[in-house]
Design a protein around this nucleic acid. Structure first.
Lengths: 142, 142
DNA sequence: AAAGATTGAAGGTTCAATCTTA
DNA sequence: TAAGATTGAACCTTCAATCTTT
C-alpha cells in the first residue's frame, strides 16, 4: 500500500535500519581511533596508500581507489600532511601530485588494522550473542 | 578464522555493505531535497516537531526524540531559525527553550513527505527490479 | 580546451569548556 | 550544584569557482 507518508510501522523499520548502521559505524570508528588515533577517513587513505601503492600513489589514483572527488581528497590530504601522516610532492614529469606515507603514517595504520578487523567481524560479518551486530539490530524489521 | 587484518573477501563484503548504505541514504536525501529544499537533518527536526509536538516542543524534548546531543541540536536549530523554518523562544516559567515550527517549515515538511516515503519504500522496504535497493546491493555478501 | 588540484563558502558533527538560571 | 543551552575549535563533506599546466 502506498500513501503520502510512511506508516508508523514503516517509520519504525526505517529508523531501526539507520540506527543499526550507525551503531556499527560508530563501533568500528571507535576501534580505529582508540587503537591508533586515526579517524575513519585517515584509515581509508592510509590503507590504500600502503596496500595498493606500497606506500605511494598519485593523488588522482588515490581518488579513484577511494571513490572520492578531488575536493574531498585534497582537504583530507591537507589535514593528514599537517599531522605528519603523509607527504605530498609535485610530480616533475607532468601534472599531478605524488602522495607518500610517512613512517608515522605506516606505523599508525599498522596499529589500527587488528582493531579494525575485529570490529568489522564482530559487528557485521560474524556477530556473536555477546557482541550483537547489524543483523541483530534488524531482527524486528522483517 | 581470525587474523590481524581483513582478508580480501572480508574487505570486499565490508565495502559493499557501506556502499549499499550510502546509496540508500543518498537516494533518500536527494528525494527530500529536490521536493522541498530541506536537508535530511532539517526534515528530521521538522517531522518530530509536527508529528510529536503538534508544531511545538521544548528543545530538550526535541533532543531526546531525535537522540541528538545538545550541541548538535543547538547548531541545527540556529541554522533552521536563520532560514525561517522555525522559531526559538525562552520559556518564562523555568529553564529551557520552546521551539515552534513556522508556516514555512510546516509547508516544506509537507512537501517532502511523499517523496521521502516513496524513496524509503523503494530503496529499503520494498525494492523492485527497476529500483534496486539496499538488499540487492548485498546479494554478493552472503 | 582538458586534466589535476585547490579554495571559498556553507552545512554538518563532536568534544570540551562555558554561561545562565533555578 | 545541576539542568538546559551555547560556543570555540577541529574535523568532515559538498558545490561551484578558480588556478595551473599540458
Amino acid at each position: 500500500m502506498s500513501t503520502r507518508r510512511l506508516s508508523a510501522d514503516e517509520a519504525r523499520r526505517w529508523e531501526a535500519w539507520k540506527r543499526a548502521h550507525d551503531v556499527v559505524q560508530a563501533s568500528v570508528g571507535r576501534a580505529i581511533e582508540s587503537a591508533s588515533g586515526l579517524s575513519v577517513p585517515d584509515f581509508a587513505v592510509l590503507t590504500r596508500l600502503v596496500e595498493i601503492g606500497g606506500g605511494e600513489l598519485r593523488q588522482n589514483e588515490l581518488a579513484a581507489s577511494l571513490g572520492w572527488d578531488r575536493s574531498r581528497l585534497s582537504r583530507q590530504l591537507g589535514r593528514m600532511a599537517a599531522r605528519g601522516l603523509l607527504v605530498s610532492r609535485e610530480v616533475t614529469d607532468g601534472v599531478g601530485r605524488q602522495i607518500s606515507v610517512t613512517d608515522e603514517g605506516r606505523s599508525r595504520v599498522q596499529q589500527a588494522r587488528p582493531a579494525h578487523a575485529d570490529a568489522v567481524r564482530s559487528a557485521l560479518l560474524a556477530p556473536t550473542s555477546s557482541a550483537p551486530g547489524f543483523w541483530d539490530g534488524l531482527e524486528a524489521i522483517g
